[in-house]
Design a protein around this nucleic acid. Sequence first.
DNA 1: CGTTATGTTTCACT
DNA 2: CAGTGAAACATAAC
Length: 260
Amino acid sequence: MPELPEVHGYKVYIDSTALHQTIIDMDCRDTRLLKKDLKQFEKHLQGQKLTGTQRIGKYLFIETSGEKILVLHFGMTGRPNYYKDESDRPKFGHIVLTFENGFHFAFENKRKFGWWNLIDSIEDYKKEHNLSDDARELSFDDFKKSLENRKTHIKTVLLDQSIAAGVGNWMADEILYQAKIHPQRKVEKMGSDEIEGIYNAMQKVIEVAIANDAHYADFPEDFLMHFRKEDAICHHTGAKIKKTKVGGRATYFSPDWQMK
DNA sequence: CGTTATGTTTCACT
DNA sequence: CAGTGAAACATAAC
């Protein structure tokens, strides 16, 4: 689920639920989800409040009243869940914060690819992890510049978080479908008109997805998400959607619509 | 039972 | 050193 638009929704959700309340407990059922020792989390979170959030790509930074910043990454199957009754704890809520007001904040993570970390500086973290500006804020010039010297397939590059943070597998397929470019087109062969087309498609996909709360069923009818399945019918050509692998990831595209 | 899944990190190779 | 591609990670659901 969580690519840029989904994580944007999680941020809005957290902003309106879990902020500004004193944390009285942290429960973690699987410490493999923690990038630091559980003791560190307890030390820096207990008695503190979550005070604000910042999102870069799929990373959510949560500022606290303490000295550390909490980093959440949802992996492939994560989402936040704010609830009151203990009996409502979600099945895969592996990490749960409890607040003074009796409510709980669960980090659901079915597949356990998500994680929490504690850091001192968002700027430093961004540099250390080669994270680009968020795809929604990224300028066309910076995008174009970071594509220089890349010799691989355009889809692989779109998935690189140092290029446009937040683009994930479904977004990359959707962007390329909207831009009419084949996922295996080589970046070095692309003209600036194509790069501009991809940049514009990226902005369009982000805005459409956010406007619809990342609810795919509500996307415009010419969006790939409605027929992103092998042998489904392309809205434009009526031909069958093909499935392949690019950069190790499942990739769907419309052969006659997207030029290689 | 085998396959697949919307992500990141690590590692070997060029 | 930088870019690339494959493998590893963990687990539910079909």
